[in-house]
Design a protein around this nucleic acid. Sequence first.
DNA 1: TTTTATTACGCAACCGATTGCGTTATTATG
DNA 2: CATAATAACGCAATCGGTTGCGTAATAAAA
Lengths: 337, 337
Amino acid sequence: MDKRITIYDLAKTLGVSAGTVSRSLNDHPSISQKTKDRVISKANELGYKTNKFAVNLSTQKSNTIGVIVPKLNSIFMSTVLAGIEKIANEAGYNLIISQSLESMEKEKLNAKTLYDSGVDALLVSLAYDTTDFDHFANYIRNKIPLIFIDRVHNLPNCSTIIIDNKLAGFEATEHLITQGCKNLLYISGNLKRNVYSERLKGFKEAMAKHNLKFNQANLLESDLGPSSVKDVIAHINNNDIPIDGLFVANDTFAAHCIKELKKEKYKIPSDIKIIGFNNDPISELVTPTLSTINYPGYELGVLAGQSVISHLNGGIDLHPANSITLRHKLIIRESTL
Amino acid sequence: MDKRITIYDLAKTLGVSAGTVSRSLNDHPSISQKTKDRVISKANELGYKTNKFAVNLSTQKSNTIGVIVPKLNSIFMSTVLAGIEKIANEAGYNLIISQSLESMEKEKLNAKTLYDSGVDALLVSLAYDTTDFDHFANYIRNKIPLIFIDRVHNLPNCSTIIIDNKLAGFEATEHLITQGCKNLLYISGNLKRNVYSERLKGFKEAMAKHNLKFNQANLLESDLGPSSVKDVIAHINNNDIPIDGLFVANDTFAAHCIKELKKEKYKIPSDIKIIGFNNDPISELVTPTLSTINYPGYELGVLAGQSVISHLNGGIDLHPANSITLRHKLIIRESTL
DNA sequence: TTTTATTACGCAACCGATTGCGTTATTATG
DNA sequence: CATAATAACGCAATCGGTTGCGTAATAAAA
C-alpha cells in the first residue's frame, strides 16, 4: 500500500540531492544545521525508514553479531547470552544466535552461515568435540573480531573470556580435602575442552599439595548427560577404596548424582561430600544444598558483549589476543559440611 | 587482500553476462545445464561467495527470523528457542533473538529494531506488562508473519502456539483435590497474561466441580521472583484455614516454595501438597520430587519454527489466524502423594 | 524450406543507501 | 574590492546482486 519512502523521495520533495539527505540523516558535519532540520522533520513527517539492506550493502556491515553456543537450553549458557544480548542491544547490534548442539560439524556449518550472512563479529563457545579450527580462518583472515567465551581455544588475534578454571578446580578440591575427604573423584566433561582439563589440573595440584596421589580411579570423564549418572554410581560402587569426595563438572549433573546416591543409601555429606560447578539456581534448591563454584555467567556475557563492541568501535584491535579472566568464588553449602 | 569475487568477475572470465551467472547460481530453468555447470565450477574454483547484503537489498528479504522473549535465561524459554533454532537453521534462516526483560517498553523497542532490520517474520512471547500492541502493527500491515508463542495475544491474522492452559490448570487442581486437598492456593503470575489467567479459570472450574468455593484467599498473584517466596509463606501462615494444596505457576518457584515451607516445618506432601508447572529439570531433582504439568517447550519451539517457515514458504498464509495447541500432561511425583 | 515455438542468454533498470570529489555560495583576509 | 578559505551541497559512481523484457540461436512444425 503505502510505498516505502526513500531518500530520493525526500530529496525530491525537499529540492535537494539524495546525498544531502543521506548526510543530513547521519548528522554529517558538512551539512548546515538548517538543512539537517528540514530534512529530519520532513523525514519524520513522511515516516521515512532507512532501509537497512541498502545500508548494509553500501557499508558492507550488518550491525549484527553472531553467536555460536553448544546448547541454548542450558541455564548457564542462556545466562551468558542474556548478558551478551543486553550489551549488544544497547549498542545497537542485533544478535544472531545459533547452536552447535555439541557437534563440530554443526559448528562449522554455523560458522560458515554466519560468515556468509556477514556478521560483524563472532562469539563462540566451543562444542564438545571441536578439534580443528579451520572454520574460523575466514574470520581471522578478514579481521572480523572473533572472541571465545568459556569454552575457548587460543587462536592468534582472538580474545578469550574465561574464569581461572584451574584455580577454581584447585579451590573446590582443596575444600573437599579440608573437609576431610581422602579419596576423591573428579567427574569431568570432555577433557578436550579447556574448562574441564584446567579444572583437572587444579584437582591434581590440590591433591598433590595435600599428599594425595592421583590415579585414574580419581577421574571419570563423562558427557554429563542425565543418563550417564549410572556410570558414576557404578564407578563409586565398584571402587576399592570408598570414595568420599565428589567434584562434579556442573551443578545439574551434581544434582542428579546426589539424587541417585541418596537412592543408593549414601548419606550426603557424611558418606560422600559433593561440590558442583557454576552455581546454577538448582544448587540451592536440592537437598542437601550444593556447594559449588560461582561462575558469573551474566557478567561473562556482559564482558563478552563489551569486548566485541569495543573491538567493533575501536576499529583497530585494542588488545590483540588478550584474555579476560573473571573472578570466581567458592560457595560452601550443606553438601560438603 | 584477496578481493571478494562477484558475479561480474565470474561473468567476465566466463564470457557471459552477470544475469546468466546469477541465474545459473540459482538454478534458474532458463539456463542450459551446460552453462550452469561451467558457471558453478568456475565459481567454486575462484571461491565465489554470494554477498548476502546485495541479495537482501534486491530481494528485500533478510532470511532472518526475529524472536522476542521475556528472558533468555529461563530454562523453559531457552528450550523453546532451541527448538525454534533447530528448525530455522535447517531451513536456512538465521535467528535474531532479543529479550524484553518483561518490559513492554523494551519489547516495543525490540519490535521496532527487528522490524527496521528487516526480519522476514517475528516470533513473540509477550512480556509481563504488555498491554497494548501497536508495536506489532507494522508487521501486520506489511504482512510479515507474526506468531505468538506461549504468552500470546489474539491479533488478527496472527497464529498462536500454546497449550490448553485452562485444561492444564483444571487437571492440576483436580489432582490436588483428588489427593484430598480442601483448601487450595493458586500462586499465579501476572494475570494479564493468558497463561496464568487461563490456568486460573481451570483452577476455579475444578474447585467448582468439586464443590469448593473460590475466594480471594485461594489466589496469590506474584511476580514469581525468588524474593517473592516470602509473600507466599506469609500468605500461608496468616490464612485462617490452613492451606493444604498449592498450585504454583512454575516449577522453579515451586521449588523455592518447597524449600521455604520445609524451613517453616511444613511437611510436604503430608501437610501441604504441591504441584508445579512446566516440568523443568529441577522438578525431579528437588526433595520431594515435584508433581507438575509437562509443558513441551522444545516441541513448542519446533512447531513455532515450522509454522513460520511454512508461512514464509507458502507465501500466502495457509492458516489465517490459526492456533496450534500442544498436548500437555500431568506428571505425578512425590509432592502430591 | 519457411514459419513458429522454444531455448538460452544479454541488456539494463533497479534495490536504497554511502561517499569521494567537484562546484557554487558565503565569509574571512589582505 | 579582489582573493583566498571555508562552508554547504550536488553529481555520479559504487556496493553486488535480481529480474523483466528483448533477441539471437536452435528445434519443431507446417
